[in-house]
């Protein structure tokens, strides 16, 4: 199939950026990123600079790939990362517009590559259980209800790709942050530090320049792991409760 690609090019964070248009010949068995490989190989053959994009596992788990395809983070399909899209979903003659995540907290590094270290800093602010190696008791000492563990897992499946931020008109990181908060809060081991964690992570999220949540729900719709927006509600409740509690304590 013959495709027209309009791809965002940007030299660095300071550059204004523009779209370049390319023609590419793809095969329906290819993955989307293999189609991009073909494009880059042809650019290299012409002695030109390939399009910079990030990827690693190419199976939907590392959270590295990040393209906004025809206006949608990770493209048209539900529960799918960019690297999991296959070209059989496109038709001969299609035009595809490809852009990076766009958010103040994710500055562009080059072309489609953005800096997502803000997510790391949110985790560093409290997205963990404070236990040192060797301090653990036997793994079966605390039984955890099967469904509770499963719900914690539902939240823990987040791959930290940032599609939620890219999808949100306010570039909010609430889905990402609340998924980690929920995962840890649902496990008995994580409950001890819950209040402190919620406050610290939300504070960091704000400091990174992510926007407010106004319940649009685009994050949930575009999340490749289908993380539920219920996590946000849960975090908001905890946040209010913990703020009230700490005010009382003062």
């Amino acid at each position: 199939m013959k495709l027209t690609l309009k791809v965002w090019r940007q030299k660095n964070a300071q550059d204004k950026g523009h779209f370049d248009t390319f023609k590419v010949e793809a095969h329906e068995h290819m993955s989307f990123l293999e189609m991009m490989d073909v494009l880059n190989e042809s650019l290299i053959a012409e002695g030109k600079e390939p399009v910079a994009f990030e990827h690693d596992c190419r199976e939907g788990i590392c959270g590295t790939c990040n393209m906004v395809i025809n206006g949608r983070p990770h493209g048209p399909m539900q529960g799918t990362t960019t690297c999991q899209i296959h070209m059989r979903h496109y038709n001969d003659g299609d035009t595809i517009v490809i852009e990076p995540w766009r958010a103040k907290a994710f500055p562009v590094i080059k072309d489609l590559v953005v800096d997502r270290t803000a997510f790391d800093r949110i985790i560093q602010s409290g997205g963990y259980i404070s236990i040192n190696t060797g301090q653990a008791q036997d793994a079966n000492a605390i039984p955890i209800e099967k469904d509770t563990a499963a719900r914690a897992m539902d939240a823990a499946e987040c791959i930290g790709c940032g599609a939620c931020v890219a999808a949100c008109p306010n570039a909010s990181a609430m889905l990402f942050t609340s998924a980690k908060v929920s995962h840890l809060a649902l496990m008995p081991q994580g409950r001890v530090e819950h209040s402190r964690r919620v406050q610290a992570m939300i504070k960091q999220m704000d400091e990174e320049g992510f926007g407010m949540c106004s319940n649009v729900g685009a994050c949930e719709a575009e999340c490749p792991k289908e993380i539920s927006i219920d996590n946000i509600a849960r975090m908001n409740r905890s946040y209010v409760a913990s703020v009230l509690a700490s005010e009382k304590a003062v």
Binding site: Q135, A136, Q137, D138, I142
Partner: peptide, 22 residues
């Protein structure tokens, strides 16, 4: 054996049986 203990203490949501054990 220590690895599993450590991971559970970190909050790793391993699969569980109905009785709540791993």
């Amino acid at each position: 054996r220590n690895i599993i203990d450590q991971a559970v203490a970190q909050g790793v949501p391993f699969a569980r049986e109905y009785g709540g054990l791993l």
